[in-house]
Design a protein around this nucleic acid. Sequence first.
DNA 1: ACCTGAACACCGTTCAAGT
DNA 2: ACCTGAACACCGTTCAAGT
Lengths: 228, 228
Amino acid sequence: MRPGPRRSLTHAEILDAAFDLLEAKGFAAVSVRGVAGSLGITPTALYTYYPSKRALLRGMIEHLLARLDVGADEHVAVTGATTVDAVRARVLRIALSLRELLAGHAGALELIMSGPLDGPNAMRLDEALLESFATAGLALDDAAPAVYAVRAYAFGSIALQSAEVDVEADAAASEPLIKTDVPGAALWTDLARFPLTEQAATVTAQRNSTAQFVWGVERLLDGLLARG
Amino acid sequence: MRPGPRRSLTHAEILDAAFDLLEAKGFAAVSVRGVAGSLGITPTALYTYYPSKRALLRGMIEHLLARLDVGADEHVAVTGATTVDAVRARVLRIALSLRELLAGHAGALELIMSGPLDGPNAMRLDEALLESFATAGLALDDAAPAVYAVRAYAFGSIALQSAEVDVEADAAASEPLIKTDVPGAALWTDLARFPLTEQAATVTAQRNSTAQFVWGVERLLDGLLARG
DNA sequence: ACCTGAACACCGTTCAAGT
DNA sequence: ACCTGAACACCGTTCAAGT
């Protein structure tokens, strides 16, 4: 087919195809050519819908964050729970929802880290967190950096976790990554120099990573809400 | 020159060239071909020193983290400062050193996020943080996740900041990134729907980003050390 | 052991041309 | 407006061959 018939795709169809690629073959496979190919279209045709790869990725991020559960600002007055407890529960729920979203789709983290988070759904996330901290009695001067801290912890935590997962994938390519003479690399396996790290490794191995994530959010909230 | 003379490069020379490229042209420019080219060498020749691009990046990460200041475990008994205050100061110093290191070199964050942090210098970082929390009286069961939380906050914070910086770079390409019909994108600029976020934006704009980073570390430490 | 040159299977993006 | 085909300037990696 030379010029081809008018196919007229939806943005939603394109994004769905992109996510299928992301889930099936990872972030690297989400190329302009790859997405176009899976839609039976030329790379150039995709540029009719999105002016650049970056724009396509932005669209994907919004699509993903649309599924984020930010909860509601229910003032639980009737039950025995204090407002602060309700706020803690909501922030934790948001953080866990974010984690689930990014851990669930392979490559979603790289996607989200590939650019700034300033779309409407990212703002929805910020608004929910700000609302929570305001409800807990924080002034905006404290609530704004508190939101920043929660976002930083959540994204960093997910990033560290997903980087660790990559190790297992690399285990197949088991050749030594370094050969000689890199400064400081001679003692690559000298665990004895880091006794606490060695001990901690066994502790960490036993712990559920979700539990660790939650524990950190709780500690952060301890510090954040102490000023309410 | 066909087969060429034996140049016999050092790993250090290669890494220096790679960092020059990183600083001058960003992470994307750190390609096997690019690094090889800047050394006056064929891409294939680079594979004699590093078996893959990933291995080269690992070498770069170690090279970078070697400059990390993790402080020392001085028990300040003489001065009026409590041990807990000394620990707070040390953790903060490490976090700031990490931030400075990654913010200083353009593209360093992408570099560090490109793979797991398990080299000797990454372990040196972990060991220093574990030591700090142990000194503050935390049991290893709490110290290990505390280290995890600090790392998560620090990396996440730096990641969010560097993603924001990219916005300014994109300002030149000022065409609209989305055209129509993306779900939820119609209200892309509808700031009125997020009143708190709008207010917070003016607050955040006034604040120094380093101050915000420090504030978050302090709050996290508040929560972490409350159990010592 | 270290290096070259050619090749394979990819990238993002642009441009003239078709309907 | 939507699409094609060809092209430009790139990727990481492999392989046979040279010294």
